[in-house]
Design a protein around this nucleic acid. Structure first.
Lengths: 109, 109
DNA sequence: TTAATACATTGCAATAATACGATTAATAAA
DNA sequence: TTTATTAATCGTATTATTGCAATGTATTAA
């Protein structure tokens, strides 16, 4: 039916998958990398640097913001975006635990 | 147009976003968690444990397999799935580097 | 006030993803 | 061989995502 049955999963599973989904696009990875490099925030620079239309960039920024991964504040005419430290650290911790819970190949298949 | 312009992004950005996309679904998170817990692989148990149809589970398993996150081998009548250690470690390392590259809030916005 | 700049929103078209019933393929048990 | 079991695949309906032109909104500069 094309509708994810989120009610049958745990809150943790739903939350983590939503965060991952927000990051799971090359443009949004590129945006995050750009924010991470120039620790100071950016805005319309992205439109020039990535080869996408302004409306598209704005849409991607909105998705990252809605997911809580970034935050933005109005700075005169432009808008300044940066990492949301709370979500970032939460995600870092959660993913770290998830990946490190794998105890190597125990000769299985 | 509904078509991601992968040609304007780096291979790293495209690859990482594809791996994240493969994980970005609660059912697939649940499948991975299940595999991580019962270090020994599983198969049709998932159909009982998760509340999804067999065809749907099979589809999710295929996506994880296509992305290279899990691997499966035929074991009699059933199929045994487990983590692909190469991709897993690669992803763990790449995501670890990505998240740890954030140097805290430098009072920005 | 008027014009310019920087983003956000809206609306549209095209493609992708989700879920499942039905069917198929392959192995195991009788 | 026949039957049962397990899982993959196909077809289809529904919903979500992607990308952009056009438009709207708010702030700054003249």
């Amino acid at each position: 039916m094309g509708l994810t049955k989120s009610e049958i999963f745990t809150d943790e599973q739903n939350q983590l998958s939503q965060l991952l989904k927000a990051m799971a696009h090359p443009a949004r990875i590129a945006i995050l990398q750009r924010i991470l490099i120039s620790n100071t925030c950016i805005c319309g620079d992205l439109v020039e640097e990535l080869g996408l239309a302004q409306a598209t960039i704005s849409q991607h920024l909105k998705e990252l913001k809605t997911a809580g991964i970034i935050q933005g504040t109005i700075e005169g005419v432009s808008v300044c975006y940066c990492i949301n430290p709370v979500t970032w650290k939460m995600m870092e911790h959660q993913l770290g635990a998830f990946f490190s819970s794998y105890k190597g190949e125990v000769k299985c298949c």
